[in-house]
Simulated assay, not measured.
Amino acid sequence: MAVKKTAADDAVTDAGESAVVPAADGGAAVVEVAPLGVTFGDNAYTSRSLFLQAGDDMREFKVLTGRVTVQGDDAEALAFLGGHADLQRLDG
């Protein structure tokens, strides 16, 4: 049986939080919803790796087919990629 979504379900899903989904037995289950990705287009390369120093570690962002995507709630990655001269944010 299909479950009808409400406006509240859509708002929670869009916010990238958790949603309460009715279960088949009449109960409910909380489901984690992954945050939406943010994509950047690379104007210089179609394939390369970009590295961000995060404390003692390095974070790698792979550009594939001229695009790199990160989680929408990753402020550090968004700031790094958004400030890169060769990258342009494609969505949002």
Rank of each mutant, 00 (worst) to 15 (best):
N43A: 13
R67C: 07
V33G: 09
A79I: 00
Q71Y: 09
A24M: 08
P22Y: 08
V31R: 09
P35L: 04
Y45M: 11
T39E: 14
V38T: 14
S49K: 13
R89P: 01
L36F: 08
Q88M: 09
L52K: 12
G66M: 08
V12H: 08
V70E: 07
N43P: 01
V30A: 11
D73F: 02
A34E: 15
A23R: 15
D9Q: 03
T69P: 06
D9P: 03
E32A: 15
E60N: 10
V21D: 04
D25M: 03
D91K: 10
M58Q: 13
G82I: 00
L50V: 07
D86T: 12
D91E: 12
A28P: 01
L87Y: 12
F80D: 03
V33D: 07
L52V: 04
L36D: 11
A34W: 03
E76Q: 12
F80G: 01
A34P: 07
A23L: 13
D9A: 02
R59G: 04
A77Y: 00
D73M: 01
D86A: 15
F80Q: 02
P35K: 11
L81K: 02
V70C: 04
D57I: 05
A44T: 13
V30M: 11
L78P: 03
D91C: 04
A24F: 11
F61G: 05
G72R: 07
D42G: 05
A23E: 10
T65A: 15
G27V: 02
S47E: 14
Q88H: 10
D91Q: 08
D14L: 15
A28I: 04
G82F: 05
D9S: 02
A23F: 04
M1H: 10
V33W: 01
A11P: 04
T6K: 02
G83M: 01
G41S: 13
V3K: 06
V3L: 07
K4Y: 01
R59P: 02
T65Q: 12
D74L: 05
A44K: 13
L87C: 09
N43G: 09
T39W: 07
K62E: 13
A19F: 01
T13I: 15
V21K: 05
V21E: 11
V63Q: 09
L50K: 03
V63H: 10
E60L: 07
V30R: 14
G27E: 13
D91A: 09
A24C: 01
H84M: 00
L64R: 15
E17T: 14
A11D: 12
Q71A: 15
N43Y: 03
F61M: 07
A24T: 04
G66K: 07
G27I: 05
A24H: 06
D10P: 00
N43R: 14
E60Q: 15
G83A: 12
A11Y: 01
V3R: 05
A29S: 11
A19D: 12
A28F: 09
G72P: 08
R89D: 03
L90N: 04
V68A: 06
G55H: 08
G72T: 06
V68D: 06
R67V: 10
T39H: 06
A44P: 01
A19L: 14
L64W: 05
A15K: 09
R89A: 09
A23K: 15
A44C: 03
